[in-house]
Computed example of a mutant assay.
Amino acid sequence: MIRTIEVNRPQETPVDRLSELADQPPFEVIIDIKTHMGDYVLSGGKLNDPYMWQQIRFAENWIKLNIAEGNYAITD
Rank of each mutant, 00 (worst) to 15 (best):
D32S: 08
D32L: 06
D32H: 06
D32G: 03
D32E: 14
I33A: 11
I33Y: 02
K34E: 15
K34V: 07
T35N: 12
T35W: 05
T35C: 08
T35Q: 12
H36W: 09
H36N: 07
H36D: 11
H36P: 00
M37D: 03
M37F: 08
G38Y: 11
G38L: 11
G38F: 13
G38S: 15
G38K: 14
G38W: 10
D39N: 12
D39Q: 14
D39C: 10
D39V: 08
Y40V: 05
Y40T: 04
Y40D: 05
Y40G: 05
Y40W: 13
V41A: 14
V41K: 15
V41P: 06
V41G: 06
L42N: 15
L42G: 09
L42W: 13
S43W: 09
G44A: 10
G45V: 09
G45M: 08
G45P: 07
G45C: 08
K46Q: 12
K46T: 14
K46S: 08
K46H: 12
K46P: 04
L47V: 13
L47W: 09
L47C: 09
N48I: 05
D49Y: 08
D49G: 10
P50S: 10
P50Q: 11
P50M: 09
Y51A: 10
Y51Q: 12
Y51H: 07
Y51I: 08
M52F: 06
M52W: 09
W53T: 02
W53N: 04
W53E: 02
Q54G: 14
Q54W: 14
Q54F: 10
Q54P: 02
Q55S: 07
Q55A: 12
Q55N: 15
I56E: 02
I56T: 04
I56Q: 03
R57S: 11
R57P: 02
R57L: 13
R57H: 10
R57V: 11
F58T: 02
F58L: 03
A59M: 03
A59V: 15
A59D: 00
A59Q: 00
A59G: 00
A59K: 00
A59I: 02
E60V: 07
E60T: 06
N61M: 12
N61T: 07
N61H: 13
N61D: 15
N61V: 05
W62G: 01
W62R: 00
W62Y: 01
I63C: 02
I63H: 01
K64W: 04
K64T: 09
K64Q: 12
K64P: 01
L65I: 05
L65V: 06
L65D: 13
L65A: 14
L65H: 11
N66Y: 02
N66M: 07
N66V: 00
I67W: 00
I67E: 00
I67K: 01
I67N: 00
A68N: 10
A68E: 15
A68I: 05
A68H: 04
A68P: 00
A68T: 10
A68C: 04
A68G: 01
E69R: 15
E69S: 15
E69F: 14
G70E: 03
G70M: 02
N71C: 01
N71A: 05
N71W: 01
N71T: 01
N71H: 07
N71K: 09
N71P: 00
Y72S: 02
Y72D: 01
Y72R: 04
